[in-house]
């Protein structure tokens, strides 16, 4: 028996009983919780059955993985350090230029896709669907297409990132424009400014810090995606990485992965700094 309740335990139990509804969720919430968790579990079982997951393969696979991991140490460049460095440079170039080109295309288009600056609802609808379509195709598939157009090499990767990110950035930019405060634009118009001046002086100062932050974030995430685009021959470190995995040179895989980790960490650090500088400036002005 709980010593704190002492002789009054029966009373305490009665009080607890009276206020039971405070401690327990309502019947409706409980049923909903139950239905949701049961649904998730049932769908998981169905998925496992549909995909015919081979559970007997898992143990064999794990031992194979363990072997791969032991093969990774010590990491070695395999005497291709210059090649790897060049590939890493290509990866950075693809991420930077891809994002830059995507920004150049997405920025003007995003005004057409935002409800407060578009020319006509029909234009807005068309541009939005255009963004949706090119966004739903992964950069890797665009890379396959562009390898066919401009040949193997990083240029195909740049174009692939540029196209797929035009859709993603366009959507984000147009959302930033839509959520901007209308007062800035209205006051420029009220003081006799043109529509262009209203956008330039009433809208842009509000959205530029947001947009700059998003661009930085995209460069960061594109460094990650540019590391794999090489698998289809579109430049960057992915080509070496996929070849090394196929030929079981896991010490070199480990080396390349460590290079990627370090590069991404450096880029993250720089963009964190820049983002802080941009947001800091917005807080000041």
């Amino acid at each position: 028996m709980n010593p704190l309740l002492g002789a009054n335990s029966e009373q305490a139990a009665a009080i607890l009983d009276r206020h039971r509804h405070l401690f327990e969720a309502s019947a409706r919430a409980r049923t909903r919780g139950f239905v949701v968790s049961f649904g998730i579990a049932a769908f998981t079982v169905f998925s496992v059955w549909w995909l015919a997951i081979p559970f007997n393969e898992i143990l064999r696979g794990l031992t194979a993985l363990a072997k791969f991991i032991t093969l990774m140490f010590p990491p070695s460049s395999g005497g291709h350090l210059d090649l790897l460095l060049k590939a890493m440079g290509e990866t950075l170039a693809i991420a930077f230029l891809g994002t830059l080109i995507a920004t150049i295309f997405a920025f003007p288009l995003s005004f057409l896709a935002a409800s407060n600056t578009t020319l006509h609802p029909l234009v807005r609808f068309t541009v939005r669907r255009f963004f949706d379509v090119i966004r739903s195709i992964d950069a890797l598939i665009w890379a396959l297409v562009f390898v066919g157009v401009v040949g193997l090499g990083p240029f195909a990767g740049i174009l692939a990132i540029a196209v797929s990110d035009t859709g993603a950035l366009g959507k984000l930019f147009s959302e930033a424009i839509e959520s901007a405060d209308e007062k800035g634009r209205v006051s420029v118009l009220a003081s006799g400014g043109t529509d262009f001046a209203a956008v330039r002086f009433g809208l842009l100062p509000q959205i530029l810090p947001i947009i700059a932050g998003q661009i930085l974030y995209f460069i960061e995430s594109n460094v990650r995606s540019a590391t794999i685009i090489g698998i289809v021959g579109a430049g960057g470190i992915g080509l070496q990485l996929s070849e090394q995995i196929r030929t079981y040179d896991f010490d070199q895989v480990a080396f390349a992965v460590i290079m990627i980790l370090i590069t991404v960490a450096i880029i993250d650090w720089i963009s964190d700094r820049l983002r802080f500088a941009i947001i800091g400036r917005r807080a000041v002005t």
Binding site: L51, I53, P54, I58, R60, G61, A64, L65, Y248
Partner: peptide, 8 residues
Amino acid sequence: SAFGLGPL
């Protein structure tokens, strides 16, 4: 390479 081809 470890688990073979397939969704797993």
